[in-house]
Design a protein around this nucleic acid. Structure first.
Lengths: 324, 324
DNA sequence: TTGAAAGCGCTAACAT
DNA sequence: ATGTTAGCGCTTTCAA
């Protein structure tokens, strides 16, 4: 038994499908009894409007796409959660795709969003392998989140101004007596990766430290890489502090540190990136650079709901150093 | 400038829209040069098939809906992540909705999924307030996850067989010398809540403990409630151990315990529910009842991809007690 | 107050 | 190898 349509209901009741349509849209121009009959029958049959038909006519529900690397990282999860709530308020349909930071998956997701005529997409751009063509986004209103893709005219973006917090973190470590501070961050294929590294360097030189290059690790921003790099740093044993410049990297590095906890020479001062709730609970509290998730999400939805035609605006929200 | 369609491309090239359609569908019955011309032009214009049109014709991409209370809890996040991966492999479109465990939101989500002709829905049913009508799901293939809704013919379900693990947890606490074990779980409005409480009682009596009723707290399965109940238990001070029977409740309770950590009388043995990664890191490691997320997700996708018409099957996956 | 026709983008089934 | 027609479910426009 297939879905009820206005036509099936109409035939059922021996009236025109237009009357049914009007009744279901609460048009005033239908006799009360007719409407009641229609509504009742529609309810019985579990009638639901076909989104496809509506879309084809152009009065589609507005769809907002969200592309995230994953949704296990608490930052992304919170972001998605906040976006979902905000979308409800704006009567936007939210469709979430996970890219796993892979350019191909990302393109497929974008294609699917175009197919369903998404009006806007909020995306954390996947790192690009230089020679690849920029992602095709058709006429969708694309808003970049946290990272900014290169090689094209700037797109509207919702970013984190983490430079000050990163410099403050380095300063704090220096003031606490650390001279050898290691850094793990995203490779410079990502503009955000470059910016954070610059901030780290600036902080270090402001504190009068000269950072040896082998204390600086840049890599793909994944949990696994963060873990691996942290293990390497522990093994080398020449750093006394570690600062991370990325959500996944930070979690990965922290996992390595915690699991090496029994080992006394492990006692590395750590400052993470992002503030998942458990950072407050682990190891007497983990210091970190907190990113204002909810503000980012709300602003992203604003931009998506009311596309800013006045040009590609970049908005930054300040990160905050949390010392624990 | 609006989206390119087969007709616009056809007019553009002075051919029939059918030829364009065929070319784009790789039909063998088009001259090579014609096809090439079409493909090139289509690419230039950034042509994308209209999902709406395809849906209307009935050859829609198969859509799988996923309804979760939230996506911040690591269990749900992992579940969604695993489902997303599995859906890719099955060429299913995944649409995630968050219900916040609210019956109304849940119904709205179901309606929207029906509108887009979702073929299946995997859902964690929201607790129901007794008198409410059961959710309308039309002809969608509904698969219940973790919890089972009452008051209607059974639906296919993917459940956790946690009875043995819960009893083992109680036994372990008893063997460690605990006589006053508190329990926080979902109210009996949820079948899973009832089942877990039963398991707790069974475990207690098997261990020769008689549990006083005021050590048993059942409530709405939210983080906030878990936290509040745990605080109350701490304050009362008559329990020496605490067992939780729910993901959110467990996290909430744990947060209360950790934040009361300095207080010596706080030293409550704790066994949680679900195994977010940080449980291994907090407080020297938190014991817990681990639920096999990935298996659940994979099985749910199987059921969704190949609806089991042979009746409403309940499948259970065993939970495991992790002692840390 | 109700109905009939047209068209949104696409493809299967017939023409040609 | 290419073109024409019809119809998927719905609403807007025009007619009765």
């Amino acid at each position: 038994m297939s879905r009820a349509t206005i036509k099936s209901i109409a035939k059922d009741l021996g009236i025109s499908h237009m009357t049914v349509s009007r009744a279901l849209s609460n048009s005033p121009k239908v006799q009360k009894e007719t409407r009641d009959a229609v509504l009742e029958r529609a309810h019985e049959l579990g009638y639901v409007k076909s989104a496809a038909a509506l879309m084809m006519r152009g009065d589609a529900p507005r769809i907002l796409g969200l592309l995230l690397p994953n949704i296990v990282n608490e930052f992304y999860a919170r972001f998605a959660n906040d976006m979902a709530l905000a979308c409800d308020r704006h009567a936007l349909h939210l469709i979430i795709h996970l890219t796993n930071d892979d350019a191909l998956t990302q393109q497929q997701s974008l294609d699917r969003l175009q197919e369903v005529q998404a009006t806007s997409v909020v995306m954390v751009p996947a790192p690009e392998s230089g020679d690849r063509a920029p992602p095709m986004t058709g006429s969708m209103n694309v808003i970049e989140l946290i990272r900014q893709s290169e090689h094209r005219e700037r797109r509207p973006a919702v970013l984190v101004e983490d430079g000050p917090a990163i410099r403050a973190a380095v300063r704090h470590l220096a003031e606490t007596g650390h001279r050898s501070i290691a850094y793990i961050g995203a490779s410079s294929a990502l503009s955000s990766g470059r910016a954070r590294l610059d901030a780290f360097r600036a902080g270090a030189s402001a504190a009068g430290l000269n950072v040896s290059e082998d204390l600086i690790q840049t890599c793909v921003p994944s949990f696994a890489m963060g873990r691996a790099q942290a293990e390497a740093i522990l093994k080398a044993g020449c750093a006394t502090a570690l600062l991370c410049g990325g959500f996944e990297l930070s979690n990965g590095a922290l996992s390595a540190l915690i699991e090496a906890r029994e080992d006394p020479k492990t006692d590395l001062a750590f400052i993470g990136y992002g503030d998942p709730s458990f950072y407050a609970w682990v190891n007497e509290g983990v210091s970190t650079i907190r990113v204002p998730v909810t503000e980012l999400a709300l602003h992203a939805v604003e931009l998506a709901a009311a596309p800013d035609r006045t040009g590609a605006r970049q908005t930054s929200f300040p990160a905050e150093l949390i010392l624990r």
